[in-house]
Design a protein around this nucleic acid. Structure first.
Lengths: 363, 363
DNA sequence: CTGAAAGCGCTAACAT
DNA sequence: ATGTTAGCGCTTTCAG
């Protein structure tokens, strides 16, 4: 073979240094500046003395060729690329969006890039996403929000947590329960059950006895916890749990509206509604209002999440405030500061507004 | 130096193949399975015949070592990593979130990863983000939404577009005007000015002559276009433009509420409000309502964007529908199918709901 | 101050 | 069917 040629790759003979399509490499720059590759590298890094005249020539070549470093080559030499990955159901959910914002803010503050994946709530896709992010060498993989989990899922996720840990990365469960004490994962929770307990208590204290638990599914971790809080409050007030007052519904606004409208048409066997999310509460409010009933005059309503759009509802919604942004920030912080306590529980509190009153049939 | 040792790196003597911290490499796996590195590679790729017994040994080693491929090394050999990057102001904006969702959906469908960066609306950070994404070797860099642009900014962005293009990537302007005909960038716009023209027309047709243009800033591309539509509608109806009826306000809900409340307290010199976004309309609605006025009885109100939370406003908002999700999907599609037309204009249309009536002082 | 050489982890071509 | 060799683009010794 003739010197200076690789077998099939591009020609490296000095004679043939015409700009090719694709990004320029250090070699291209070096040739153009008439110096060696390491010299160019040193000019860029700026951590090593280089003669002024040389530096100028190199800088000129750099500019003319519009050189952009290849991150992958860099990452290959040094350690993994500085990025945190986060995986969530759907960016359109207002509470998810807040968490995402917290993550991005904190990640940017620490000079990290963000990788994002969405799953539409499919546990299978979530597992795949975690694997993908692991391959990418993310420093942390943050899982946001609820999942429909079963034992098989938990087993796989546990093994992924271990695998990430061994690779020097970290799995973070954000707004979702721990996978067990032995699992090397960071957990950032909020007082989910307690918040549900507290709002339900508001309804009960106002005199309601038939409270519809509206929305969510048992297998979803988030709504399961909220249901637990609801039941505990009932128990504390000596009200027997009635399974017919649990109306599961998908986490979607319009579905909620339709579902409640239908139930209302069939029978009105409740005086208050605990909607598992503010979005569902919005749908519920619409169904109730359109049925010619008033909130809170005829039916009281509470939500959960305290997301901004809920402020625009009339009457204003009594709900549970969740520090979503802080949840996101904390997730990044803990994943990156491994000194810190790796399991935190953020507080929630009820925000009292105008959607709760005493039951009508009691007056 | 003793054989099998690199000068400072890790020991590569066969005797010392104890698992180190960090991820296992092909070499580690190969040693454990007693085969060569390429053999392991072939087992993983599965595109080349390997003896069954060998394959089994390799697979065992792979599992035991929890091998995860190094994406950077792969990317270094082959072409750039399959990822699309998108850059936006803030994930919490409901319209941005919809675009983001469209992008993610389409990117996932095409097996691409998503990289995300937020800028808080700072043009400087946006430029930096584009540079960062370029270094990452993203296949496309999608810019979402409005910017405050000036000539210096446009010049830099144009040069980045060229640079990305030369590197085989693509800059995509999504919901934002072109940088000029010569610039190698993809543009996915929507009929922004026309939508503004149309809703304003609704107000004018209902008899309004004093329409407050509420929100946005001149230098922001999006609101500038909406203002242009507003002015054109005015002109077509023979209504003279009155600069005092332009009330600029930040793209934030609460600020809008406060601003309109204050203006209303000072004087009520308008009978209708054109809010540049639905979020601002929500704030406006609140201010108007709390001032003891009714919408649309006393003041008519229209918004822009037709985002889901706006459905929950009472009265329901007449607004302009923008196909945000499709905007995102199209951005990805065009960036990846370079055969396709690289400049598209998506339609908008007015959605008539209940927030417009004839002006009160006319009845 | 600069260049030559080595090697990060991986894969594709080439030789057995 | 498997191993040897080479090289992606970069940084980091080491040698001059």
């Amino acid at each position: 073979m003739s010197p200076g040629k690789t077998r099939l790759g591009r020609v490296t003979t000095k004679a043939d240094q015409t700009p090719r399509p694709g990004r320029a490499t250090l070699k291209d720059v070096a040739f153009r500046a008439g110096v060696s590759v390491p010299t160019v590298s040193r000019v860029i890094a700026g951590n090593y003395p280089v003669a002024v005249s040389t530096r100028r020539r190199v800088e000129k070549a750099l500019r003319e060729l519009d050189y952009v470093a290849n991150t992958h080559a860099r990452a290959l030499r040094g350690q993994a690329i500085k990025a945190v990955a986060f995986i969530l159901n759907d960016v359109r959910g207002p509470s998810f969006a807040q968490v995402a914002h917290g993550i991005e803010e904190e990640a940017a503050r620490r000079g990290r890039l963000c990788l994002i994946c969405t799953t539409s709530g499919d546990p299978e896709r979530e597992l795949d996403a975690v694997r993908l992010m692991r391959e990418q060498g993310a420093e942390a993989v943050i899982l946001i929000g609820s999942v429909r989990d079963d034992e098989a899922y938990r087993r796989q996720m546990r093994s992924l947590a271990t695998s990430l840990d061994q690779a020097g990365s970290r799995l973070v469960l954000c707004g979702r329960p721990s996978l067990g004490p032995e699992v090397p994962a960071t957990v950032v929770e909020y007082e989910n059950e307690a918040g549900a307990y507290a709002v339900t208590g508001r309804l009960l204290a106002a005199g309601h006895r038939r409270v519809l638990f509206f929305g969510g599914e048992d297998e979803q971790t988030t709504s399961a916890q909220r249901l637990a809080g609801y039941r505990r409050a009932l128990a504390d007030y000596g009200v027997e749990f009635d399974a017919s007052l649990v109306e599961p519904v998908d986490f979607v606004r319009d579905v909620a509206y339709l579902a409640l409208r239908e139930r209302l048409a069939r029978r009105r066997d409740f005086t208050a509604v605990f909607a598992v999310t503010d979005q569902i509460a919005a749908g519920a409010l619409r169904a109730v209002t359109e049925a010619g009933l008033s909130v809170p005059g005829d039916i009281s309503l509470v939500g959960y999440d305290d997301v901004p759009p809920a402020t625009d509802l009339r009457p204003q919604l009594t709900t549970v405030h969740v520090p979503y942004e802080e949840l996101g920030r904390t997730a990044v912080r803990l994943a990156l500061d491994r000194q810190a306590e790796q399991h935190v529980l953020l507080g929630t509190h009820v925000v009292i507004r105008d959607s709760v009153a005493a039951p009508a049939d009691r007056a």
